[in-house]
Amino acid sequence: MTEITSEYIKPELMACCGAREIKDGDIVIVGTGFPAVSANIAKYTHAPNAKMMQESGVYDANPRRPALSVGDPCLNPGAAFIGSLVDVMGMFLQGGWVDVGFLSGSQVDKFGNINTTVIGDYINPKSRLPGSGGANPIGLLAKKVLIIALHDKRRLSDKVDFITTPGYIDGPGSRAKWGLPEDCGPEVIITNKAVMRFDKHTKEAYLESYHPGNTIEEIVENTPWDLKIADDVHETPPPTDEELRVIREIIDPMRMINIYLDRGYI
């Protein structure tokens, strides 16, 4: 193994954490930003046969610039398949063919429930957010769900104000009550401080690794639930030179990933 000496920014590390959850051959439904970068890192490193789709109707696009939305013009030329929302969300996702879904949330709780609908009261909102879009079906129907969030007590929550996208709802057995398979659901929350993985039994997110420069104490302090810590808790492995090369030379030469620094991903 070569010693890693490269400087990197937090969003790059977070994107790599996402990439490492993707296996070769996985079908990944992606949004823009982190999800697309992560899936591409995976594709250009350990998972060359991973394939991406976008809810707007696209499968296996070959964009010449980073897509700024899931309906971006650059997703059209070179894709293997272009159809409709019913094709991707219905035929592929609801049909059970999507391995990994990748979501971000304005508010995420310990059971991986995500709120993208409203902060405060639904009828008289303090802050009205966009709504579900594709998040709810992706969260329910992808076999494994990766969640990106900012690590503070506002974005992480003991219980979200509104469950737009169910994770494990109220904990063990909750998904089964709704006829949802128990072995699907959130896998990790990747934040700007840590990777938190969901416990197979309690369905609660616990601390698996802390990012270089962040401490366990700081993470516990900024997590609003009684955060359990893995016996083998460790530092998150930094991006490898190869991962950084892929991000900077292939996926994002324009360095659009820098926008996440302004959004607090530091």
């Binding site: 609801q94 609908t117 579900s132 709810n136 079906p137 329910l140 996208t165 169910p166 006829g179 949802l180």
Partner: peptide, 9 residues
């Protein structure tokens, strides 16, 4: 449809 179940929607 197989979505929305378990959510506040």
């Amino acid at each position: 449809v197989k979505d929305m179940l378990g959510s506040d929607l």
